[in-house]
Design a protein around this nucleic acid. Structure first.
Lengths: 261, 261
DNA sequence: ATCAACAATTGATCTGAATCACTGTTTGTG
DNA sequence: CACAAACAGTGATTCAGATCAATTGTTGAT
């Protein structure tokens, strides 16, 4: 049953994903499908259900291990399922006909992708690290929601949180200059990261490429690079590694970022 | 009972609103409170309930008539209620400490404001025309949602739609230039307006000030003014009145806007 | 280990939109 | 009705960030 192609699945898209699997050994993926041992068990929508209710989710879901750089859903395609990320990171983006692309967010363990009111996906989601995602056919999920109102409430809460994040991003893109955007982004990462609470000089992990980061912040990679140098020269940040930055003065950064997000 | 200040209401904010009422005669407002005769009966969250179920909403809601330029909710304030717009238009905006403000959206009949996961409002909502809003205390609404799962489902759908709109706005602010932003905005207005479906040269109504429009599009009023002139000179639009514009060539406008919202 | 392909950095230059300054036009008010 | 205050339009100038161009890492495939 696991890894079988369900009748209403977009076989083409899934085939492409399966072909790309290189890193993740299949047995590991198989284990993921048992919700009770899932890394994201306590996060996202699954957190809404008691242990005993999980069997229903297990029954309708399928888990997949994906290599980096593979699409999970594509903007405009028929939305017959939603997905939960259980490990790794994805970028969510929209494109204009001429190729310009705007990253609307990053998704990691516990986050949901593909939930939309219409019948087609509003954005493309692509892995930017090796990742595991869990697929829930729409009709199966509807049944579950009808049976467990808690679940619907949880989805409403998650969607509201996402909406708030989107509005913060609108504020960032509409009002803030390059330095403020980067400051806001670093602080948001620090806030979301676990184990950095209370650390006066938190180190943030940047798994995405600079190119993706700039596409998220509405800047060009060159601008990002220059602004990072300025922040470094000003003694506000320190590059610990290529993908790791220590915030030397979060308060100053916060002031600069407009004390928001 | 109508217009009384409920115990958990922010009396200060409401007093301010009531003071400002000038246009709306009270009897008219009183009528609004009977949901069955509400202008927004078939829109927004109320559409989820059958006629017989409306009494529950009537019981917990209070309707108010507001003059233009008055706040309904304020960013950061304690969120103990949500509101539905039943007539008129509001602007929703967030501010930075230094005063820069970004309008995240406009709300009109059927739209909901103040729904958020946290315990404080994420944005300020202010009337930009005379308007009527309907107040639902949070706990009353929770009770209603528990009783009517349809209602919760409707809220989820509405929030998803709003999220999609927010992501479109992120694309607009992150990628598009001034002309494209205006084109997208005009087309979105034309699409939302009733009675313009199929009209090859729809006329759109712009109730908001140029200042608000520019704050929504992440531009300065001067830039907006110049771009409008260019669109006019290019024969794409025609100014029918100060607040009314006819789209002479929606297709060309659509191409220019990147064929997206 | 080598090399091709791609990502990141840095510099030089350009440009779209912001800013500044002023004028005309509404709007609301006593 | 007059008049202040706010809004809208236009021109001149500036500037933040984009674009163009070149170099230097990094990565991953063979």
């Amino acid at each position: 049953m696991l890894f079988s192609v369900a009748p209403n699945e977009d076989a083409g898209a899934w085939r492409a994903m399966t072909t790309g699997v290189a890193a993740g050994p299949l047995p590991a993926a198989r284990k993921e499908t048992f919700c009770s041992s899932c890394q994201a068990r306590a996060k996202g929508m699954c957190a809404a259900l008691a242990e005993a209710e999980l069997s229903g989710l297990s029954a309708i879901s399928r888990s997949r291990v994906l290599a980096s750089g593979l699409p999970v859903i594509r903007e405009g395609e028929h939305a017959d399922a939603v997905y939960t990320v259980t490990s790794g990171m994805l970028k969510l983006f929209k494109m204009l006909p001429d190729g310009r692309q705007q990253i609307t967010g990053f998704a990691s363990a516990g986050d949901m992708i593909g939930l939309s009111y219409g019948d087609s996906f509003a954005y493309t989601a692509e892995t930017i690290t090796a990742a595991t995602v869990c697929r829930f056919p729409r009709n199966g999920l509807s049944t579950m929601m009808a049976r467990h109102p808690h679940l619907q409430g949880r989805l409403l809460a998650m969607t509201s949180i996402e909406l708030t994040a989107a509005q913060d991003q609108i504020l960032l893109l509409g009002c803030k200059n390059a330095a403020e955007r980067i400051g806001s982004f670093l602080l948001a990462l620090a806030r979301r990261a676990e184990g950095t609470a209370g650390d006066p000089q938190p180190t943030v992990f940047l798994p995405m490429q600079k190119t993706d980061m700039s596409a998220y912040l509405g800047l060009r990679p060159e601008t990002l690079s220059r602004q990072f140098r300025k922040l470094e020269d000003a003694g506000l940040i320190e590059r610990v590694a290529a993908d790791r930055i220590r915030l030397l003065d979060p308060d100053a950064l916060s002031d600069m970022a407009g004390r928001v997000a």
